[in-house]
Design a protein around this nucleic acid. Structure first.
Lengths: 275, 275
DNA sequence: TGAATAGTGTCTGTGAGACAATATTAT
DNA sequence: ATAATATTGTCTCACAGACACTATTCA
C-alpha cells in the first residue's frame, strides 16, 4: 500500500499535467446491415442494400445533421464495453459482431473540446431487429462507388438523399494505406464521413478473406441471397459458379427450400463455421 | 461567439463528468527493423533477424522490465504526431513508415491509473540508424513461432534472452479476429506483449499484399536480401523462382552488382514504386 | 575444385473467370 | 410459353509450388 502510493506519487511528479491534460474519449459505432426492398416484378428477388444506422443530432454543434451512434467511454469501462452498451441501446441486441476499427483523434474534430473517438464496426442481421428505433435513428441505404482516388457514397433513408465524397490520398512512403479527406459532405456531422468510408473499406476487404458476411445473414438463407450480400457490399456482380465454388466449403445444405415466385425454388443453407 | 459559448455550456450540462471522467492517453510504438549478423563462414550471407526496439523501465511499475517506446499524447497533438515525436527521439529520424495499429484500453492495463494506449507500427531501415540509442533502449531480435493457438516470440538482445507466449482465442461470433491473452511473460511490461504480437501479425499480413517490406530496405539491395527480409518476417523459407516472379514487377534492376564472397555476385535492385 | 549464392526454365496442379446448358416455378 | 432464378458442367488462362539446371565467385 505504502509502495503503491509512493510510485503513484513518483509517477505524477513526472507526469506534466499542464502539458498532458487528460482528454475525453468516445466510441462511435458503424452499425452495418443489409436491407431488402420489394421489387415491382413478382418474379424478381428483393433488392438488397448495404445500410448503416445514423442518428440525427438534436443539439449543436452539427444540429440536424447525421452522425454515428456513440457515447462517452466511462473511466471504468473499455471502449468495447462502451460500444456494446451503445449497441444494445440502439438495437436491443446483444451478441453482435463487433470489431475495433480505428481511433480518430484530429485535434479539432469536435469544435467544443478535445475528444478522441475509438470507432467500431458492428454487423447485424436485419431480421433480428424489431422496427422500433431508438430516438432519432434511421437506416440509410448506401450506394458505393469507389475508384483509385475517391469513395463516393450515396445515402438514402427514404426521406433524405445525399452524397458524400471522400478523397483517398496515398500517404507518404511505400504503403497502401490511404489517408482520407472529406471532399464533399453537407449532412454528416464531425469526421464521421471518414469513419464510414474506413468502415466500408474494412468490411469490403474482410469479406474476401473471412466469414464475416454470415453475421449479416439469418440462420437459413439461399445462396442467391448470400451472393447478393456479397455483391452489394463489394459493389459488383459476381459469377454464380465462381461464387458457389468459393462458398461451398463454408455452408451446409438443409432439406428446406424457399419458394420465391415465378422461378425454380432454392435450397436453404446454413453457415457451417470455420471448417 | 455568443453561440459558441452557449453550445459549449449546453454540452457540458449533458456531459456527466462524474460518470465520464477524462482519461490519459499515450502512444506506444512498435519500431520494427531487420538486423544482420555476420556469419562464421565467409561464403554465407549475413543472418537476418526481425527485430523490435524496447526500452528498459527505470521506474515502478514494472521497473527493470522492457516496454515499448512511447509517451503521453498532448492535448494539442494527434496520436500520430505524438508517435512521430517519440520516433524522432528514439531514432533521430523523420519520414519513417508509420501506421496506427490498435487502441488498447483495458481498464487495469496500467496499475497506476486509467491510461489508454493508441499503438503504432513503424518500419525502419537499420542502415539509416546510427548506433547510439536513446536512454535504455535496445534492439531485440525476434524468433517467431506461430500456430493456430499461440504466438511464441523469443526475444534476444545479446544480453537477455526470454520467451513470450500469447494465446490466440477466436472471439465469439463468426470472425477471424483473435483475442490475444498473455500466456507466458516475465520480462515485458504492461500489456505490451500483446501489442508486439498484434504488430507482428499486422506486418506479416501486410507483407503479402502490400509493398511495406521496402521500408525495411536500403535504396539498393539484392533480391536475395529482400527475400531474406520476407523470410524472417513470415518465418518460413520461400522458393527463389516464385519469390522473384512476385517481386519482379515491383523492383528495377540497376547496373550495379554486389560482390559478396565465395559465390556469384548479385545485381542490385531498387524499389520501383507501386506500378 | 567445391561450397555457396544468383538466376532461369519448365512442369504440374489449383483455382478463378467465362460462358454454356439444364432445371423449375408462377403467371 | 415465358421470364426469372437455381444449379451444374467445362474450358481456358494465370499463377504458385516444386524441382532441375546453369552461372559465377573466392578460399
Amino acid at each position: 500500500m505504502e509502495k503503491e502510493y509512493k510510485t503513484e506519487e513518483e509517477f505524477l511528479k513526472n507526469y506534466d499535467s499542464s502539458k498532458f491534460e487528460k482528454l475525453s474519449a468516445t466510441t462511435d459505432i458503424l452499425i452495418f446491415s443489409v436491407a431488402s426492398s420489394k421489387q415491382d416484378n413478382y418474379r424478381k428477388l428483393n433488392n438488397k442494400h448495404f445500410s448503416v444506422l445514423l442518428v440525427k443530432r438534436k443539439q449543436h454543434p452539427f444540429k440536424d445533421m447525421w452522425c454515428l451512434p456513440g457515447g462517452f467511454i466511462g473511466i471504468d469501462e473499455t471502449s468495447e464495453d462502451a460500444a456494446k452498451r451503445v449497441l444494445a441501446r440502439e438495437t436491443n441486441l446483444h451478441n453482435i459482431y463487433l470489431e475495433q476499427l480505428y481511433t480518430f483523434d484530429e485535434v479539432n474534430r469536435d469544435p467544443r473540446m478535445r475528444i478522441i473517438s475509438i470507432s467500431y464496426v458492428a454487423l447485424v442481421d436485419k431480421n433480428r431487429l424489431d422496427d422500433t428505433l431508438y430516438e432519432d435513428a434511421s437506416w440509410f441505404n448506401m450506394e458505393i462507388e469507389e475508384d483509385e482516388k475517391n469513395i463516393k457514397i450515396n445515402l438514402d433513408n427514404g426521406e433524405e438523399n445525399f452524397d458524400v465524397v471522400i478523397k483517398k490520398t496515398l500517404k507518404e512512403l511505400t504503403t497502401d494505406r490511404y489517408k482520407y479527406t472529406i471532399e464533399k459532405n453537407t449532412r454528416i456531422a464531425f469526421d464521421h464521413a471518414k469513419t464510414i468510408a474506413s468502415g466500408i473499406s474494412r468490411i469490403k476487404n474482410k469479406l474476401e478473406y473471412t466469414d464475416i458476411a454470415f453475421n449479416l445473414m439469418p440462420e437459413y438463407f439461399t445462396l442467391g441471397e448470400l451472393q447478393q450480400v456479397y455483391e452489394v457490399i463489394l459493389g459488383k456482380k459476381l459469377l454464380d459458379p465462381a461464387f458457389r465454388r468459393i462458398i461451398a466449403s463454408k455452408v451446409e445444405q438443409t432439406e428446406m427450400t424457399r419458394v420465391n415466385g415465378g422461378h425454380r425454388p432454392s435450397k436453404l443453407f446454413k453457415y457451417k463455421g470455420n471448417k
